[in-house]
Structure formats: C-alpha cells, structure tokens
Design a binder for these strands. Sequence first.
DNA 1: CTAGATGTTGCAAGA
DNA 2: CTCTTGCAACATCTA
Length: 532
Amino acid sequence: MAHTCIHWFRKGLRLHDNPALLAALRDCKVLYPLFIVDPDCTYGGNNRKRFLLGALKDLDCSLRKLNSRLFVVTGKPEEVFPKLFKEWNVTKLTYEYDTEPYSLNRDSKVTALAKEHGVEVFYKVSHTLYDMDRIIEENNGKTPLTYKSFQGIVKRLGPPKKPIPAPVLGDMKDVKTPCSEKHDEKYGIPTLEDVGVDDTSLSEELFPGGEQEALRRLDEHMSRTGWVCNFEKPQTSPNSLSPSTTVLSPYVAFGCLSARTFWWRLSDVYRGKKHSDPPVSLHGQLLWREFFYTASVGIPNFNKMVGNHVCTQVDWDTNAEYLAAWREARTGFPFIDAIMTQLRREGWIHHLARHAVACFLTRGDLWISWEEGQKVFEDYLLDHDWALNAGNWQWLSASTFFHQFYRVYSPVAFGKKTDKRGDYIKKYLPVLKKFPEQYIYEPWKAPLSVQRAAGCIVGQDYPRPIVEHEVISKTNIQRMKQAYAKSSQNKSESPIKKTASSESPVKNKGVKRKMTSIADMLVKKKSKGEVS
DNA sequence: CTAGATGTTGCAAGA
DNA sequence: CTCTTGCAACATCTA
C-alpha cells in the first residue's frame, strides 16, 4: 500500500527516535512533513518562539538532506487539515502521541475529520520513556503520587524502549515530497517578525533550538564521564555563573532530543562504572519527568487547584502588585530578582532557583496562587512543559506531592550557600554591583553611607523588600497549617464519591484513572499493540 | 491498629 | 569548614 502521508510535527521536532515518522516512510510514496502554527497555542514568550523557529529551521534543513522539506501552515488544525487532505489527496496521517488535554482534544477533532476524509490515522508514543496509560494500568489504575511508588512501577516494567535511528536517504528511495518553486513563499518557516516578536528586544541566544544542536550538546555532556556518573541534582548550584546542569531540558521539552535517546546514552556512560542513582542521578531526572507526566494524565484538572482532588485547597490572595513585582524582578530581594531577571532574559534558570522563586511567590512570602506562577513560567521558560510546570508548582507550593510546608526557603540565606560573594546577583542586577559582600543579599540593611558609596540607594535605585520575610513566612506556615487541617477535615467528612471500591477514600487519596478520553476512544483503538 | 522511618534540594545556631 | 541539633511538624509507607 503506497500512501500519500502527512507527518504532523507538534512536539517531537526531530528525525531521530521518531517512530511515527519512520512508520510513515515505510508505506508511503508521497510524504508531506507538516508543522501547523496554531493560533490557539501561544508558544509562550519571545524566547520560546525563537527557540521554536530555530527548531523548525533545523528540521527543514535535515529534511532537505533527505530530499524532502518541511511545510509550515498557519491556522487552526481542524480548519487546515480538511483543505490539505483534499489538496494533497492525503490517505494517511501520522504523529507523535501527546498527553496534554489541549492536544488530546485537538487530536480527537482532527482524527474525526480524517475519518470523514478517508484518511488513516497512526500515532506512536515517543515523547516520554513510557506510555503513561501503561504505568497507571500497571499500578492497578491508580496514579502514583510518590516518586518511590513510581520507581517501583517502572522497575516492574523494565527499562524504556531503545530509540530508533533517524531515517537516512535509503529510507527515502521510494518516497517523494512534492515541492513547488513557491515552497518558501507558501510553506516557509515564519520569521520572528511574522510571529510578532521584536527581535531587538531579545538578548543573546544561549540555547539555540533544534535537533542538531540538541545532539551536539548531548554528545558534549556525555563525554564528561565522571561528571555524569557522579551527578547528584541537589548538589548542583542554582546560582553559578554558567549552568551547573545540562540544560538539555528545552530540547527534551520540544522533542528536539528524545528522552529515550538521552536515557540510553546515560546507560552507555554508566555501564560498568559506579554511578549515582534516582532520584538524584540524571536517569532520576528523566524519571521525574515521567512521574509528572503520569500524574498529569491520571489527575483531572492537573493545572488547577479547584477540581484537582489531590491538591490542597489554599486561600491564596489576589495581589496584582506583588505578582507584578515578582514577575518583573522588583521584589527588593536581590536573590529573587536576579533569578527572575535570568529567567526573563535567558529563558532558563536552575531547578533550585525555581524552588526559591516559587516558594517565595506562594507559601513562603507573597501568598499568591501557584497557578499565577505557572502562567509566568509558561511564558518565560524555554523548557516549559505543561505537565512538569503544573506538577512542580504544586510541589513547591506544598499543595500536592510535597507536604513539609514548614520548610521554607529564605530569599536571603538560600543563595549564600553556593554563592557567598553574590557574583550571580551582580551579574543579573548590575545596579547592586558595588555593594560589599556583607550586604549583597540584603542591601536594605546597608548604612546609607555604604549605599551612597555603592552608587545605589535602596528605595530609589533598587526597591526596598516588599515583605518582611522573617515575619510573613511564619504567618504563612500557620496559614498552610490551617489549609491542611481544613482539607483533611473535608476528606473525612465527605468521602470522595466513587465509593464503588472497597478502599478507604482517605487513605486512597490517589485518584482512580479517569474515564478513557474521547481521543483515546477515537484514536487509540487503531494502533492498539503498536503503542506500548 | 500504632509507631517509627522516610521524603531529590530549609534555616539557624552551635560544636 | 563540616557536621549535628532544635525548630515545628506534613503525608505516606513499612514493620
């Protein structure tokens, strides 16, 4: 059977370990590699858009080497596809499975349209190490809520699948991509300007998008054998002047780098050597990703507090002033403001730096909902990932997964552990550059003479702290205590209404797997047996 | 059922 | 400088 096939790139912006693409090549004579610029997707802020366009350019470049091209079309997928199905006489559509609610909904619509047009749909799980549904199934339909239990499940499932190689010219000998003279005009990759980005507002591109860049960086890191084997996440620094971790996360988030490729390359490095283990190792980091992905599939309303059964309900304040000060790096706490500056400028901050600012925004100081922080990170983080962002915000706000709310990060003390001199602060907040070490984390404590000598008066040139951390963090711990007390009271008074099972609803806080989604019902049947 | 250990990454003070 | 301890104190898992 020789199909005319569209391979739809969404995430998974790569040729290596792309089983749906390879499946398309196996039985088609005509291939259209497609990316749709979907107006319903924001693609985040300017840095994320630049990364995406870079990844698309790289993809097009790699496809050219296979005598093919990338077709970029703007519009809602459910409007784009019917036109393309007809225009190109399409008989098959392939894509990588995506578990985000928006994607599931979109894909179910597109699948229905494909059916109407007699187009066969085929997809594969390759964004994650495992099929999330399989993990939940292995756990008797319950979503694991601790890393330990998750590890146990994964151990029973065995190591993830090995990645498959990228297609080579030989795979293309019976496949053509019809390209007109006007390809660039009609289907070219949009410019930054096209997607509404003023490129003069962007700073230096530290992490260029694309599969080639991803694989180059992977090679670079994997050659540091000792470093990889000894890697322990909590020992890495949130405020080093250059990243203390791999920063491969943006590449994994966009699918420029396959998680399975990353996993097995790590296994190669580990082989025969003593090495660190999950949760702190690099393998452990990939498993954290799987953990949050699984939770995002199993827990309804995962990116919200209300309607999220595992999330502690907290009476967060609405405070536009505080939120803006946090987002715009003017809280008056240099460590917090430096981190937020790095985030906005460069699109990446260290995991522990995320902890510091997330705790500060929510349970630690400002008492603002983690959902607000989630939105800001969605805009700024190059490695933004729906499931990980929601999961980590719940963790840091001590709403879900993590419960030791009395452990509060200090916006002053935490950074000192790894950067006593405040070099990181001085890099991102040059206005404080001349402050002596003694006051760099709390410039408001410096005598006026010292402030004058540093050429920076607190209250004029740099903001005064918006809260008194020592006081407010103690108040907030009490507020958290109340929220916890209230939520455990609610749980014992009104047990969750799915009492069909014999388990106690209090103990069995882990949600039962939600009903099979519409997308599953429509799509999943087709590739049963292909997926796991 | 209870008691104790554990949980990727807290802080401050003191030995 | 590294390690321990008290601080106030959560849910979850295991014995």
